[in-house]
């Protein structure tokens, strides 16, 4: 493992630990990691947008796939229209012409809403409706050779759950009486669904946490603390003194924060 790998792995480990340090409380190391990720990502996404959006969706369309053939008799010259609309957004920098930027925005939101209406109606209404019209398979009740209500009720539960949850989202009537009862059944159905979803997601998050621990345990340990590693002779002392320096920085920071707080509280009102 070369020295560069050691350095970057150690930096990754430091930033991981700096982020986890937030579990104790807000501190300068967490702040450093936070500002670093915000700043780096902002710059990174400029490039991502340029290469992922501007080049393939505008320049390459105008140039039929080749930047250097830009404006060379494109078969899709209409792509210049969104380009112009995008440029109009820059009029926001001018107080006098800032109103022009509302035109592309209005067009964007209008088109998006227009596209969304049939799509939402199809996917979230019509298809859901068909899925709610479930056919009960009566043979399931006796599928195991004896009366088995749970196997048979699966379809029934889908239907009851969907209808009652829908009634919960009926806003034109107060949830009272029988209507309120059905709505309550609806919110119970929702909460059971949310519980399952919560558990599933927590498991996924734990796997992310394990992944970071594995990084520290495997990648970093191998890079800095493995005696068979040629970096060990300087890597371990370097990491050791780095940690010492960080602890010192933290102690100074805490001390200064304490003094500042003390001065503020003791200052005459």
């Amino acid at each position: 493992m070369d020295f560069t790998t050691f350095l970057w792995t150690t930096l990754g480990a430091f930033l991981t630990l700096a982020t986890f340090s937030f579990l104790y409380k807000d501190n300068p190391f967490y702040k450093l990691a936070e500002h670093l990720v915000v700043g780096v990502s902002a710059g990174y996404f400029v490039i991502i947008v340029w290469h992922g959006t501007m080049v393939p969706n505008l320049f390459q369309k105008l140039a039929d796939g080749d930047w250097y053939l830009l404006w060379l008799n494109s078969t899709q010259p209409w792509y210049i229209v969104p380009g112009i609309l995008g440029i109009l957004m820059w009029t926001r920098f001018s107080k006098k012409y800032g109103w022009i930027s509302r035109w592309p925005m209005a067009l964007y939101i209008g088109i998006a809403a227009g596209v969304a209406v049939p799509l939402e109606m199809s996917n979230k209404v019509n298809k859901q409706l068909v899925a709610t019209m479930v056919d009960i398979d009566w043979s399931n009740f006796m599928g195991a050779g004896f009366f088995d209500p749970f196997s048979g009720m699966a379809s029934l539960l889908i239907f009851i759950g969907a209808v009652s949850a829908l009634i919960y989202f009926f806003f034109s009537k107060a949830h009272t009486g029988v209507f309120g009862g059905v709505a309550k059944l609806g919110i119970w159905t929702l909460m059971i669904g949310f519980g399952a979803s919560f558990g599933f997601t927590v498991m996924a998050r734990i796997s992310l946490f394990i992944n970071r621990l594995q990084y520290l345990d495997k990648n970093w340990r191998e890079a800095a603390f493995d005696a068979s590693n040629p970096n060990y002779s300087f890597g371990f002392p370097l990491v050791f003194w780095l940690v010492m320096a960080l602890i010192l920085v933290y102690i100074i920071w805490e001390l200064m924060a304490h003094l500042k707080h003390k001065n503020q509280t003791s200052a005459p009102q």
């Binding site: 209404v125 409706l129 068909v130 709610t132 019209m133 479930v134 056919d135 009960i136 009566w138 239907f159 969907a162 209808v163 829908l166 009634i167 989202f169 009926f170 806003f171 034109s172």
Partner: peptide
């Protein structure tokens, strides 16, 4: 809200027609 009411009516009708068909 009224569209949802219509949805519920259609869902119930669809559910019942399938049972009746069986």
């Amino acid at each position: 809200d009224y569209a949802k009411a219509l949805f519920v009516v259609c869902a119930v009708a669809g559910f019942l027609t399938l049972i009746l068909a069986d």
